[in-house]
């Protein structure tokens, strides 16, 4: 196979397949007048099989893509839609192109998963082409790692022109005088860090941050309301209100951290 080679980088310059205007018009007509099922052929171009599992779970009875006539077929010669998964490894370029050429025109090419869209986590590997659109023209991109069955059905609906795409390219430009708000300015910075660190240690970054936020909102709320509550009392109240014993445990621990900070003790494992 003679391919033009760039002598500087030793990378073969292979232009992606282009489609003619005639085929584009045919494709538009197909999308407009499609009155029958859309058959899907799945081309695995070096994926990890996560995407395949999600494709098969989207044709199970729970998601049932077949109620829209979407059916997975065994040969590209039967296909209306080609579903490319994987980051397109070097070895899979020719088989991918053969599947593309074998499918009758007009065909819709869907790039599935993060690897199919842009190469995903493998985008800068030496042995991949980094995305389906580097070898064949792509009509619809379904990102996700892997896309959930619901995202798959949404992607097919976009490919068949039944639903509009939701994402639009946006650019935010910083406005004059735009500032990021300081979180909880009433709580000392060192205490805030200690609380957040402790909550994250006990519950992970997501739930930990949520619990720490709730706890600090509670602290600030109590500081602003008049009344003769001691800190311990309001903490005990918050713990008693909590239904989940795990969250109650964490809130109790955070209350202990606050008590320690008030007494001027250093956190565990640190010397003052």
């Amino acid at each position: 196979m003679n391919v033009p080679l760039d002598p500087k980088t030793l990378v073969a310059e292979m232009s992606p397949v282009s489609t003619s205007e005639h085929i584009a018009a045919m494709k538009k007509a197909l999308l407009k007048n499609i009155q029958r099922s859309a058959y899907v052929y799945r081309v695995d171009c070096g994926g990890c099989n996560g995407c395949e599992i999600e494709i098969f779970s989207s044709i199970t009875p729970v998601f049932d893509a077949e109620r829209f006539g979407i059916k997975v077929v065994a040969s590209p010669r039967h296909a209306d839609i080609l579903l490319f998964t994987g980051a397109v490894t070097r070895a899979m370029r020719m088989p991918g192109l053969r599947a593309y050429e074998a499918a009758p025109d007009p065909k819709i090419v869907v790039s599935y998963g993060a690897c199919g869209c842009t190469g995903g986590i493998f985008h800068d590997l030496y042995c991949v082409w980094g995305g389906t659109d580097n070898i064949v023209p792509v009509d619809v991109y379904i990102p996700g790692c892997p896309p959930t069955p619901a995202a798959t059905i949404h992607g097919f609906a976009v490919a068949l022109g039944l639903l509009e795409q939701k994402l639009k390219a946006e650019t935010h430009v910083e406005a004059a005088g735009e500032t990021a708000a300081l979180p909880h300015p009433d709580i000392p910075y060192a205490l805030r860090v200690r609380l957040e660190r402790e909550a994250r240690r006990m519950a992970g970054y997501r739930q930990g941050r949520d619990i720490a936020e709730e706890f600090m909102a509670l602290l600030e709320g109590r500081a602003h309301t008049p009344g003769s509550f001691t800190l311990l009392e309001c903490m005990m109240e918050a713990i008693a209100e909590e239904r989940d014993p795990r969250r109650a445990e964490i809130i109790g621990h955070l209350a202990e951290v606050v008590q320690q900070a008030i007494r001027g003790e250093a956190p565990r494992g640190e010397t003052p």
């Binding site: 869209c117 896309p147 795409q165 639009k168």
Partner: peptide, 11 residues
């Protein structure tokens, strides 16, 4: 999760 798009620039 509805991220499917027709053109790559919209991603």
């Amino acid at each position: 999760f509805e991220l499917a798009v027709g053109s790559k620039a919209d991603l």
